[in-house]
């Protein structure tokens, strides 16, 4: 058994895993709204600052 069969199997399995991940993310609706998440990811920081300000005031 040549090593090339092993390599082919592994590479195709890896490729298929990524492919399944893609299909899954489309199905979950991750590509439906490509704008809001880009804004949302910046918000958590703002909230933390707000809390810190409060704690320094207290």
């Amino acid at each position: 058994m040549s090593v090339i069969y092993l390599l082919l199997t592994i590479s195709i399995i890896v490729a298929i895993l990524f492919f399944i991940a893609f299909i899954y993310s489309v199905k979950k609706g991750q590509y439906d709204d490509s704008y809001t998440p880009s804004v949302r990811m910046l918000f958590d920081d703002e909230l933390v600052i707000d809390k810190q300000e409060k704690s320094t005031l207290d």
Binding site: D32, D33, Y35, T36, V39, R40, F43, E46
Partner: peptide, 22 residues
């Protein structure tokens, strides 16, 4: 987006809210 996703602060019975901006 920010205020609508923080609705749970205004009404505790809201567990989550998510905005689809477009």
């Amino acid at each position: 987006i920010w205020v609508l996703e923080n609705l749970h602060k205004l009404n505790v019975s809201i567990s989550s809210s998510q905005v689809d901006f477009p």
